[in-house]
Design a binder for these strands. Structure first.
Lengths: 189, 189
DNA sequence: GTCTATAAAGCGATAGAC
DNA sequence: GTCTATCGCTTTATAGAC
């Protein structure tokens, strides 16, 4: 049965793409209307606090996706190396192999960060923390695990910037391969 | 003698900071007026094409700074390793040790990139190309030099994203130390 | 060269009909 | 729940006084 009544979850993917492409300030309600297919009335019915609430919902959705598809596997994989490999696969999928930017990264760079400080902060904090724990379990010493986790998460963000700047998704996929190599503990043994 | 007549060069630093903090879409003329201390009339006198021309001027200025302070030393240092060390010093200084984001990176992530595609593209293309050449001269094989250059430039961008997201400049300075280590050819010999 | 005043358009948000 | 009409404000940009 086809549901015609819009729920928040139905429009979040379109909202997310709009914010990704235009940033928070650049994502006008008319653009959002166009992308979601909903008029302003409907949007304000679903999100009474307007753009701010839409962005919060999108950030929530992203956090949920990463929790389920990246953090949980990293935490609970019996083989930590398998969890890490799973992370790279999920990340390549999520960022459409370099053709899609990171919404949280986009928000982080300009003053949008101040509006969503805790969401932006905890996205990267959780990612580096959980990845560092997995690296440690896979054999890295505490310090190297933490440093490598930071390098990997930063490397992913930077590769997304470069791929989009150069309009070449290959920059991203190549960087991901090299970052994944660095997570193999036996690399230089 | 104090010059009172404003020239473009006088306002570019203030323009740059405004674009860095708010992004292109978020940098309103009223904010620019506040930061530069110039009224709209003066701004349009200096930049007849408005915001677009201001951003172009800022991108030009950034490109000039990197050419003089990063690319030229990388190309012309007799000792390539010294040129690379010089690059890291200059970069830490330019990005205020992680407290300042990359304007070009900010532009690259959203649809602002499309307005300034060639400027954004050539900033990163020049950087990776010149750095790869220096790495090669310092002893890396062609392929490793190119890959390391891409990793370093992406790593810098990503570290800026993380440092700002976490509101912790230390993330940037630590990442820079590790990236610099990776540019030493003898690291794993 | 700098300013104020103003224009025209777009913005986020609200009200109310259906 | 969805829409249209509208409000009040801000936006970029221009005109013209000084």
């Amino acid at each position: 049965m086809v549901r015609k009544i819009a729920e928040r979850g139905d429009v979040i993917p379109a909202l997310a793409e709009t914010f990704r492409e235009h940033g928070f300030a650049g994502a006008s309600l008319s653009e959002i209307t166009k992308r979601t297919g909903l008029g302003k009335g409907s949007l304000y019915h679903l999100f009474p606090n307007g753009k701010e609430e839409m962005a919060k919902a999108v950030l929530d959705d992203v956090a949920g996706w990463f929790e389920a598809n990246v953090f949980m596997p990293l935490r609970e994989s019996e083989d930590p190396a398998a969890g890490i490999d799973h992370m790279f696969k999920a990340v390549v999928r999520f960022f459409h192999a370099g053709r899609r930017v990171c919404l949280v990264g986009t928000f982080a760079l300009d003053d949008t960060r101040d509006r969503f400080a805790s969401e932006v902060q905890s996205y990267f904090a959780a990612w580096t923390r959980v990845l560092a724990a997995a690296l440690k379990r896979s054999g890295f010493d505490t310090r190297t695990a933490r440093e490598t986790a930071e390098d990997v998460v930063a490397g992913i963000q930077g590769a997304l910037v470069l791929a989009r700047a150069q309009d070449d998704p290959g920059v991203f996929t190549r960087a991901m391969k090299r970052l994944q190599q660095r997570t193999r503990v036996s690399h230089y043994d």
